[in-house]
Amino acid sequence: MEVDKGGGTEFGFFTSRLDKMIGWARKFSVFQYPFITACCGMEYMSVACAHYDIDRFGAGLPRFSPRQADVLFVVGTISQKIAPVLLTVYEQMCSPKWVVAFGVCTCTGGFYDDYATVRGIDHVLPVDIYIPGCPPRPETVLNGLIMLQEKIQNQKQEV
């Protein structure tokens, strides 16, 4: 599709509408890659299952191949040993991609301030949404997902 991304006067209206439309489509078909390492995985299971049901927000299907995923859910403590693996997975994902830091260990390192853990995954890769909590309650996670959807909706879309 040929679209003038420069936003010239005669196409400005058209591109901004197109952005909105693509954003709308993208935000309800979030395919996540759960990078689960630790305790937060238990809450991730709860979120994914019938009680809280993440499928209501169009994010029901986890893809375990980075090539097929849009959103990287980093769930649980990232240690110095696993950080290179996380970076590799992130680099293998296709654009456009987003990253969600799930739980306080991924946000800041939490109370694991020690030789073995990374002080927040933003030392390794860029993060879009931070969901705090140790582990976050399922409601918090859903709130974070809605915030991510808003972000996807309102950003400039690459086609």
């Binding site: 403590t77 696993i82 693996v85 020690d114 030789y115």
Partner: peptide, 11 residues
């Protein structure tokens, strides 16, 4: 193993 070593004993 060891990808989730979080220094429990040191803490």
């Amino acid at each position: 193993i060891g990808y989730l070593h979080r220094a429990f004993e040191k803490h």
